[in-house]
């Protein structure tokens, strides 16, 4: 009986020392967190053909940081603010024509509602969004040409990044 008890106590102590190693302190990669708006670019004259952008820049009006996607891409991810229900993004298209390189900025204002969802202790909470209306397009001050011909919302619920939410035709 004493031996059995000693063994039991040993198992208990060894077991508890293993258990005290915290295994989920770090949010595992691939865990669904706050999604971004996935935008894809299409040709406006042939709406089924993707129209990649290169050296594409975008920023939130009033912020100094600009996101730059150097490589040519037909898909970008645009974050929404988790502490607001509206965000105004400026998208800068770089075009190379006969007169050299020109930059054209168009603004899209996103209005949305948001919802906080518990994920786990390590990952905390994530925010998912609902676009309440189609993004409002405005031109940059001093410019008089819009480069975006049409904005089409494919999915108003922003819950993951698996497929595009918005198509931009230009």
């Amino acid at each position: 009986m004493k031996k059995a008890f000693a063994l039991f106590l040993l198992v208990l102590l060894v077991g508890s020392s293993f258990l005290s190693c915290e295994k989920d302190d770090i949010c595992a990669e691939g865990t669904p967190t706050t999604p971004n708006v996935v935008i894809r670019f299409f040709r406006s004259d042939n709406t089924s053909v993707l129209n990649p952008v290169s050296n594409f820049k975008y920023y939130v009006e009033g912020m100094t940081d600009t996101i730059t996607i150097t490589a040519s891409t037909d898909s970008i991810r645009v974050p929404l603010r988790v502490d607001a229900t509206q965000v105004k993004w400026g998208f800068i298209l770089r075009q190379t024509g006969t007169g050299g390189t020109t930059r054209n900025t168009d603004y899209l204002t996103f209005d949305y509602t948001k919802q906080q969802t518990y994920v786990s202790r390590a990952c905390g909470y994530k925010t998912t969004f609902n676009l309440t209306e189609d993004p409002v397009q405005t031109d940059a001050p001093g410019e008089n040409t819009l480069w975006i011909d049409e904005v089409e919302v494919e999915k108003y619920n922003i819950e993951d990044e698996n497929e595009r939410h918005i198509s931009i035709y230009y």
Partner: peptide
Amino acid sequence: YRVNQNSNVQNTATSSNYF
């Protein structure tokens, strides 16, 4: 609670969350 943001959309080694 802190919202787990994922606004690092640039996907480069030096980039971080935009917000």
